[in-house]
Design a protein around this nucleic acid. Structure first.
Length: 429
DNA sequence: TCTGGGGTCCTAGGACCC
DNA sequence: TCTGGGGTCCTAGGACCC
């Protein structure tokens, strides 16, 4: 089974913000360079899509609510869903917060005759546990077909692929229906006249390998025939940890970039430590004003999670780079991970480097650096609500929650001490 | 008003070792 | 006295996914 929550981020927002139910909601980057992460179905009607620039989404759907996103809420909803799936089978493979494969047949009391009943029970339980989130499900004899099937009756639908019908269902579909065939591969295939999955069955393996390389060629030769025996993998190890940020305006000041690198190194270090990880390879990612993107990496003799060492190494990688025209993005990442930490002779000196993001937030004043649309807030007198709009030293808050009817909007000064932030993550904090 | 952020996997060349 | 392969590690870039 492949399960996919419908318009996940936007649905969580509509659940928690009663005034937005039934209305277009767009979650993603709010700034001038933001893009859409998820659009509610009401917004999709107007042509708004994931990965579209937020500016274009505003033009297409000006009356939508544009929200920055609350990752704590998404993670919590996701946890409830994955827990329910794990009751069904030991073999659950999450692909992201809103998607997972489940090997139903790995469960001792699996009965293929009643699989529809099982799926409907799962979907009902998920809706009950998450306050009404809907999921689309595909059931099939392979990961490939289950994933494709979950799209068929989306949203809030189920499709079961009867064994034996896989290749016939797949044949007429666009080649891009196969996960792994993106824009670049689709263009290569198009140039040799391959548009559908059925077309993809004509060339021999060797021909596909010549066209797409060993790995893609061999795997697509099989997938085109619905020949897929990839197992559902219960747990996958983290291979890298990274942060990156696109600036509202390009930055060419080296000192400013160095201080951003240090902040990012602290953030990555905090996440490594929280997960008991450390890594040897530090990568600095730079996107120039013209979108030209480079990475520079350096591998240390021993794994580390130390913020100062990560920062020093990353800063050195910036040294040789020509930044005179400005960078639009900077990122710091760590790979070559080990699930243990090198004994740190200087650990006693490094306490301040080990503060995680969370610890920083907890020790900081409750007022955030910026109010952004969608963010949870608490007001001493009016109670719980969310930021409806902010700017010019003012912040407008709608006082309603998941469990209340739609509520009123009140406006405050942005520095009003009676206003406090809830704990949420954002795309452009 | 140009094009996010967090990841995974693959390819390819060079260094280095046996 | 000119030319091996195989394997691993490192770096960089690119495609793809949600």
């Amino acid at each position: 089974m492949h399960l996919d929550l419908d318009a996940f981020f936007a649905s969580v927002e509509q659940r928690d913000k009663p005034s937005l139910r039934g209305k277009p909601v767009i979650v993603g980057g709010i700034g001038p360079r933001g893009v859409v992460a998820t659009a509610s179905y009401e917004a999709r009607v107007h042509g708004v899509r994931s990965a579209m620039r937020t500016a274009e989404a505003r033009a297409r759907c000006p009356h939508a609510a544009f929200l920055g996103g609350r990752f704590d809420a998404y993670r919590e909803a996701s946890r409830l869903v994955m827990e329910r799936l794990q009751q069904e089978s030991d073999l659950v493979e999450p692909l992201s917060l809103d998607e997972a494969f489940v090997d139903l047949a790995a469960s001792p009391d699996f009965d293929s005759a009643s699989v529809l009943d099982t799926v409907e029970r799962i979907r009902a339980d998920i809706a009950a546990a998450t306050g009404g989130l809907t999921a689309s499900v595909g059931v099939a004899s392979s990961k490939l077909m289950a994933k494709i099937a979950s799209e068929v009756n989306k949203p809030d639908g189920v499709f079961v692929v009867e064994p034996g019908t896989e290749a016939d269902i797949l044949g007429p579909m666009q080649a891009t229906a196969i996960p792994g065939i993106g824009p670049a591969t689709a263009e290569r295939l198009r140039r040799v006249g391959i548009l559908t999955v059925a077309d993809l069955r004509s060339p021999g393996v060797d021909e596909l390998v010549r066209l797409l390389g060993q790995s893609s060629g061999r795997s697509l030769h099989r997938l085109a025939r619905a020949d897929d025996d990839r197992p559902v993998m219960a747990s996958r190890e983290t291979k890298s940890v990274s942060v990156e940020d696109t600036f509202e305006q390009d930055i060419s000041d080296r000192l400013q970039l160095e201080s951003i690198i240090e902040r990012m190194a602290r953030s990555v270090s905090g996440r490594l430590r929280k997960n008991g990880l450390s890594g040897r390879t530090i990568t600095l990612k730079m996107r120039h004003h013209d979108f030209e993107t480079h990475t520079r990496s350096s591998t240390l003799p021993h794994p580390t999670d130390n913020a100062r060492l990560l920062a020093t190494t990353a800063r050195r990688l910036l040294d040789g780079e020509d930044i005179s025209n400005g960078l639009r993005l900077l990122g710091v990442g760590v790979s070559g991970l080990a699930d243990w930490v090198q004994d740190d002779l200087f650990a006693a000196d490094d306490d301040e480097d080990h503060a995680t993001d969370e610890e920083v937030v907890e020790s900081a004043p409750e007022r955030p650096a910026r109010w952004y649309p969608g963010m949870d807030v608490h007001h001493g007198d009016h109670g719980d609500g969310w930021v409806w709009g902010a700017g010019l030293g003012r912040v407008a808050v709608r006082f309603e929650t998941r469990w209340t009817p739609p509520g009123p909007i009140h406006t405050f000064r942005a520095d009003d001490p009676v206003l406090a932030a809830g704990h949420t993550g954002t795309f452009d904090a």
